[in-house]
Write a protein that binds this DNA or RNA. Structure first.
Lengths: 356, 356
DNA sequence: ATGATCCGACAAAACGATTAGGCACCCGCA
DNA sequence: TGCGGGTGCCTAATCGTTTTGTCGGATCAT
């Protein structure tokens, strides 16, 4: 039975190079107080042995695990999985691993995730928070303990808190979408929103309401249908909405997945898009352009979001490492959205195609 | 300036409980050699302090980090992101974190990922390998070093190697799909396959070829178009294929994303689906049912795959921990596929709608 | 009464890396 | 020759946890 070949440690390298393990460590950490010869021989020995530092030991000593945690609500939403991948790309280049925590809309799971990750001595944290108020305390604790936290939010979550933040100007995009629909002549518009009236996705619903108001339309409560953020949620909400006697001619959906769900509901009810119904989503997931018809949507600049998140978390970690003068003031990056008009939005037809 | 509140350690708990740190450790690990009173007071102290064991220290001591690595090619493919989420669910319940490594089709990145993870003392590994031959050596090393590896593959990857494996009977499903298309009357069929002739997705292309052969049709090389596994790949391959003079009436796509790409190409070329073109995919991602028309596809039992992967890796890890009698024989779980007929497959029309 | 056994708890040695502090040694200069 | 000040490397302490071995004392059998 072949005995498990233990990974070479710093001591093996030291022995092979003929130096002490501290010399090896110094070389590997790039200290200048080492002779050129020592450096040379240590590096050679490390290469020959295929030495890879044990990150657990390193992390234990330094009280940081070279890990960044990322908390999102739904890693299956292509918007998030795309974002995750890009953030991972950035962080991997700086030798950080990423642990993803998916929390649904569940604040308890968010807090569990925080606790779990703090046991791993995460260096940083990227959070798309569900309910910023409840999470704020735990996050502040974490940050006080040296974990640099960055928030992502297009909806003003946790504003005023002392965290780095990346915000997306969803409100502008949502407004543009509404103006687009109203400009096409739509007068019966509905908003399919996330989760519950208690968590109102303020930027998006705010844009919906103020666009209506600006054009002299009332925003009755029943024009906002609350559901989750997923395909099936959109489908169910869409059915409910489109079966109403006086169904809307245009729907603004909280995100693309929900929009796709609404599209399915419309199709199954015999409504043609965009003739009988216009639909606009948010996110511009890659798939949006592939739908039939392709989806009109408010595009988020995912690449720039990911880049900004990565930069903020990395520079925050660096700043925290040297206890330089002051704790850096929280930074805030705001990124724009763009309305991408495709095939699911058009002027309303003469009237509803189904009985009202 | 509030000093960073250090996380409580086992020593803090010991002090508070009035016992030594070893007593605390014993209690926490569930040893029986501790008095009931000691247990009680230790647990109380731990709870009061909100003690959470430091996984770095624990991992260093035990040479395992309570982490499972997962290597996939494209975490953005909804099939994989769904799978990842479900596997994470299973493993999280047993207190393992999961680190995802996305490798594209790049074998070098696969090996980098392996090296990186071994520095974290992963306990287990779930791998969807690109090229099993090259990866096999590194994986075998890893496994010899005590990391339990589980392979996922529907295409016979790395068969005969001493790893636990979950296989999906893609061949059967692909065959059923082909029989379905041929039964509908299609005689000009094409296969849009992954990547390159060097990596031929043997089960799927094999099924394509043998179905043709069984019905007396020749499988000319040009009936297989190689491309990647993503939306855009399918789109480009579809354009190429459907612009040919004698375009096929039916396309079997290597996965659903590629199928969706082909559908877009068809639409843009003015081909109606399924009248002018039938398309069948593989995976049955949730989205398939939401497309217009909904996608006919070979469904993989994702929930069962995830469950099987989780079980195999967990039981493998457990078995390795106690150096019980023998190293457990590699296990193999084969899961079935189902053909789900939806709206993108129908009998071929009188003939091509565009000039040939 | 005395040796054997056991029980509960603890001290101490790992695990692999970082780093402060110290110790030779060598150089130059007085 | 003696001394100061650099170099260049090493020793040792440390991070938080697990685990082996030990030890005092109680119990038990003889």
């Amino acid at each position: 039975m072949p005995r498990a070949p233990r990974q070479p440690t710093i001591i093996d390298v030291a022995r092979r190079a003929g130096y002490s393990k501290s010399a090896v460590s110094l070389v590997l950490r790039g200290a200048t107080t080492v002779s050129a010869e020592a450096r040379q021989r240590v590096l050679a020995a490390a290469a020959e042995l295929g030495y890879r530092p044990n990150r657990l030991a390193r992390g234990l000593r330094l009280a940081r695990g070279q890990v960044v945690g990322m908390i999102v609500q739904d890693a299956q939403n292509p918007y998030f999985s795309d974002l995750i991948r890009r953030v991972e790309d950035v962080l991997l280049q700086h030798d950080y691993d990423v642990i993803i925590c998916e929390t649904g809309q569940d604040v308890r799971r968010e807090e569990q995730a925080l606790a779990r990750l703090s046991g791993r001595a995460v260096d940083g944290m990227i959070v798309y928070p569900t309910d910023s108020r409840r999470l704020a305390a735990s996050l502040a604790d974490l940050q006080a303990g040296g974990v640099h936290c960055v928030l992502l939010g297009g909806d003003g979550v946790g504003s005023g808190l002392a965290f780095d933040r990346v915000e997306v100007a969803i409100h502008d995009g949502a407004l543009a979408a509404m103006e687009h629909l109203i400009g096409l002549g739509h007068r019966r518009l509905a908003f399919v929103a996330g989760v519950s009236p208690q968590q109102p996705i303020p930027e998006r619903s705010g844009a919906f309401q103020s666009a209506l108001a600006r054009h002299g339309m009332a925003c009755r409560d029943d024009l906002i249908v609350h559901c989750g953020f997923r395909l099936q949620d959109g489908y169910e909400a869409g059915r409910e909405l489109l079966l109403r006697p006086n169904r809307p001619t245009a729907v603004f959906a909280v995100n693309d997945l929900v929009a796709i769900g609404v599209l399915r509901a419309a199709r199954e009810l015999g409504l043609a898009v965009p003739r009988d119904l216009s639909v606009v989503g948010v996110d511009d997931i890659e798939l949006a352009a592939y739908l039939n018809p392709p989806l009109t949507t408010v595009a988020q600049p995912i690449d720039r979001i990911a880049e900004a998140l990565g930069d903020l978390v990395l520079s925050g970690i660096r700043a925290r490492r040297d206890p330089a003068v002051a704790p850096p003031a929280p930074r805030r990056i705001v990124l724009p959205t763009t309305l991408v008009v495709r095939g699911t939005s058009a002027p309303p037809d003469g009237g509803p195609a189904v009985a009202d």
